[in-house]
């Protein structure tokens, strides 16, 4: 099992290279000239090409990508556009704010993580029981209520919901502040609700359908035939089996939450990483864009890995699969080599 985890961690590297190459290419071909944006508006063409030279933008495409990976030494006097490269996790400073790009992301990431964790906890607490009730009382009133609420939750755009909540609870009722910041837990209530709503809806539906499928399985019948009471049948036998697709969905959503919910962040003025990324793209702040993408790729890869590990803990068949994969490989290696 540890070997499996180790291999997965290693696989993150080629994924990163692939992703960053694509994003690098996209930012390269997209219109807009960072040098022009940094310099004052009356800059001459000579100024602009000098700046491009300092920034390393006049080099051929592949050479720029190599610099991106391994570092770039700018000919500028104060070495201001130099950086050590992706492999040292240093992509220099933002063209716009002049702050080190990774530092900016790492500073803001805990804010996003806080919101993500709270939203995740809320959505899991609400959605799984709702899904279970809905599935075990199929066709009843509670089933209908859950289904309708899920549909509503899915259909509401986050920014709209956020603004409505602000309108009601901040401006009219003065219960919660409209500006969220991580130090003030009370101010996080509304953004967490906004973020959690769609996730709850999706998870509840997934739990419901997964439970419905699991309840029809033969081993549930066996459990009942043992004389186990229905509640325990659901909890002990049905639920854990039903969770596997739900864990997948939650994993995807955690990934999305962690890379920042831009709309919610904007509506509540929350200092998360989603806003950083979108701003960087709008201003063609290439180092910040690339650093953000690298960060996002790493996060997603890690979240996926964690989800896969959780599978192994829920379902021993999957754990066995991982272990046999590692064994097969090493057996193959053993056969081939020594």
């Amino acid at each position: 099992m540890t070997r499996y985890i180790f291999r997965r961690l290693l696989m993150i590297v080629p994924v990163l290279v692939g992703v960053t190459f694509i994003v690098f290419s996209l930012t390269y071909i997209s219109p807009g000239d960072p040098a022009r944006m940094i310099l004052p508006q009356d800059a001459t063409d000579a100024d602009i090409s000098h700046m491009r030279h300092l920034m390393g933008l006049d080099e051929p495409f592949l050479l720029q990508y190599v610099h991106f990976l391994f570092g770039f030494k700018s000919p500028s006097e104060d070495a201001s556009f130099s950086y050590k490269g992706l492999l040292a996790l240093d992509l220099g400073r933002s063209y716009v704010s002049n702050r080190p790009v990774f530092k900016t992301i790492l500073e803001r990431f805990p804010n996003t993580a806080l919101l993500a964790i709270l939203a995740l906890i809320l959505s899991v607490i609400l959605s799984i029981p709702a899904g279970i009730i809905s599935a075990t009382h199929q066709y009843s009133v509670s089933d209908m209520v859950v289904s309708i609420l899920s549909l509503l939750g899915l259909s509401m755009p986050a920014f709209w919901l956020g603004m409505i909540l602000i309108w009601i609870f901040s401006v009219k009722l003065r219960i919660f502040p409209s500006l969220a910041n991580p130090a003030n837990l009370k101010s996080l209530v509304l953004p967490v609700i906004t973020l959690a709503t769609m996730n709850t809806a999706v998870q509840a539906r997934m739990t419901r359908s997964s439970m419905l499928e699991v309840i029809r399985q033969d081993y549930i019948r066996t459990a009942r035939a043992k004389g186990l009471d229905e509640k325990k049948v659901i909890r002990k036998h049905a639920l854990n089996n039903a969770l596997i697709p739900v864990v997948t969905v939650i994993g995807l959503q955690v990934g999305q939450l962690l890379v920042g919910a831009v709309l919610t962040e904007t509506v509540f003025s929350y200092p998360g990483i989603g806003t950083i990324m979108v701003d960087a793209i709008q201003r063609k702040d290439t180092p910040q864009i690339l650093a953000s993408v690298v960060f996002v790729a790493i996060i997603f890869a890690l979240v996926n890995l964690i989800v896969d590990i959780v599978y192994a803990f829920i379902d021993p068949r999957i754990k066995a699969q991982y272990e046999s994969m590692s064994k097969a490989r090493s057996n193959g290696a053993a056969r081939k080599g020594t």
Binding site: M163, I166, W167, S170, V171, P177, S178, L179, T266, V267, F268, S269, T275
Partner: peptide, 11 residues
Amino acid sequence: TIRDPSALKSA
């Protein structure tokens, strides 16, 4: 800094 104009107004 509050980017969204309606959020600015609500605040």
